[in-house]
Computed example of a mutant assay.
Amino acid sequence: MRLASLVLFLATLLPMAGCATDGDWVELKGQRYEVELADDHAERNRGLMFRESLAEGTGMLFVHDAERPLAYWMKNTKIPLDIFYFDASRKLVSVSRGVPPCSLGDRCPPYPSSGPAMYVLELNAGQANALDVRAGDPITFGPGIPDRGEP
Rank of each mutant, 00 (worst) to 15 (best):
R32C: 07
T77A: 06
M16I: 09
G115R: 11
E67T: 13
V99R: 05
A42Q: 14
I145T: 09
P116A: 14
I145D: 02
G142F: 14
M60F: 03
F9M: 15
W73Q: 07
N124I: 01
Q31G: 12
R68P: 04
G59W: 15
R148N: 09
A135D: 03
E52K: 13
F62K: 01
A4H: 01
G23K: 06
G142I: 10
V133N: 10
A130D: 13
V95T: 07
S89V: 10
T77F: 07
D24I: 06
C102A: 12
K29D: 12
L13I: 14
D40S: 14
L61I: 13
A20V: 15
R51K: 13
A88N: 00
P109R: 08
V93F: 10
S113A: 09
D87L: 05
Y85I: 03
D87Q: 12
A135S: 12
H41W: 11
S96F: 10
N45E: 12
T21W: 02
L48K: 06
V63Y: 07
P146G: 07
D82G: 06
D22E: 06
A130R: 14
C19Q: 06
P146T: 03
R44T: 14
L121C: 05
L10T: 11
R90S: 08
S96W: 08
D40C: 07
S113Y: 00
A66M: 01
W73V: 04
P15M: 13
W73S: 05
D106F: 09
G98C: 00
H41I: 14
S5D: 07
G144I: 04
D39R: 12
Q31T: 15
G149R: 05
V95M: 08
A130Q: 14
E52I: 09
M1A: 13
F9N: 12
K91C: 11
D22G: 10
D39V: 08
R134N: 07
P110T: 14
H41R: 15
D87E: 07
V93W: 03
D147P: 01
D65Y: 09
V35K: 06
K29R: 15
L10P: 01
D22V: 01
Y111A: 02
E27H: 15
I139A: 12
R148Y: 04
A4M: 02
P151M: 04
K75L: 11
D24E: 14
D24L: 08
A4V: 10
G59Q: 14
S114F: 06
E56P: 03
M49Y: 08
F86R: 04
A66G: 02
G23W: 02
D24W: 07
D132W: 02
R107H: 02
E52W: 10
A130S: 12
E43G: 09
E36S: 00
A117E: 02
L123Y: 08
S103G: 15
P69F: 02
P100N: 06
G18C: 05
A125N: 01
G59C: 11
L8N: 04
R46S: 01
L70K: 03
I79P: 04
D39G: 10
G142D: 10
A55G: 05
L37F: 03
M1T: 15
N124M: 07
H64A: 03
L6F: 03
G98A: 01
A38N: 06
R90V: 02
V35S: 03
F86A: 01
G47Y: 03
W25M: 01
A128V: 04
R2N: 07
L48V: 11
Y85E: 11
Y119Q: 04
G98H: 00
P138F: 13
D82R: 06
R44M: 09
L70A: 00
P146F: 00
